[in-house]
């Protein structure tokens, strides 16, 4: 998956040039970006009107052992170009060792209007946290 996959290992042949982006497993990305995406599939195409490149969300792993973190978004005609644009836009200063791109329209997020109920349950359940158990404080290796 050179060159964007592993910058240390150059592709040795043109046949290794990726024609499309590799797929990754679905993520629980916490992106809240929900701009209307207008990919080729959704935008009706008029005779003269240009179809804009669709919107992609970019996730960057800053070094091995860490998660991919949402870095921002960009426009690209397809996944392969989205990856390359992400490499150029979001890793100009060695910010990453791996990149995911996800069509913005593919991200589902929790309903902002139900914030209260959706995230209420864990509030107050302090017995889920080690700090709740004060009597064992000072006991070694516990």
């Amino acid at each position: 998956m050179a060159p964007h996959g592993n910058p240390e290992a150059p592709a040795s042949a043109a046949s290794e040039i990726n024609r499309e982006a590799p797929k990754v497993a679905a993520t629980n990305a916490d992106s809240s970006t929900t701009a209307p995406a207008s990919g080729p599939a959704v935008t009706p195409r008029g005779a003269t009107e240009e179809t804009p490149w669709s919107l992609w969300e970019v996730f960057v792993r800053s070094s091995r052992g860490l998660s991919h973190v949402h870095a921002g978004s960009l426009h690209a005609p397809d996944a392969a170009m989205a990856l390359r644009n992400a490499r150029d836009l979001y890793t100009r200063r060695n910010e990453g060792v791996s990149i995911w791109v996800v069509p913005a329209e593919s991200i589902s997020s929790s309903d902002p209007d139900s914030k209260g109920s959706f995230f209420e349950s864990p509030q107050g359940k302090d017995y889920r946290h080690a700090t709740y158990y004060t009597k064992s404080e000072g006991v070694k290796h516990l």
Binding site: F59, V60, S62, L66, S67, V69, H70, A71, G72, Y90, R93, N94, E95, G96
Partner: peptide
């Protein structure tokens, strides 16, 4: 800081 997607280094 450690998980930041904006951590930059000169390489």
């Amino acid at each position: 800081g450690s998980a930041s997607a904006t951590r930059i280094t000169p390489g």
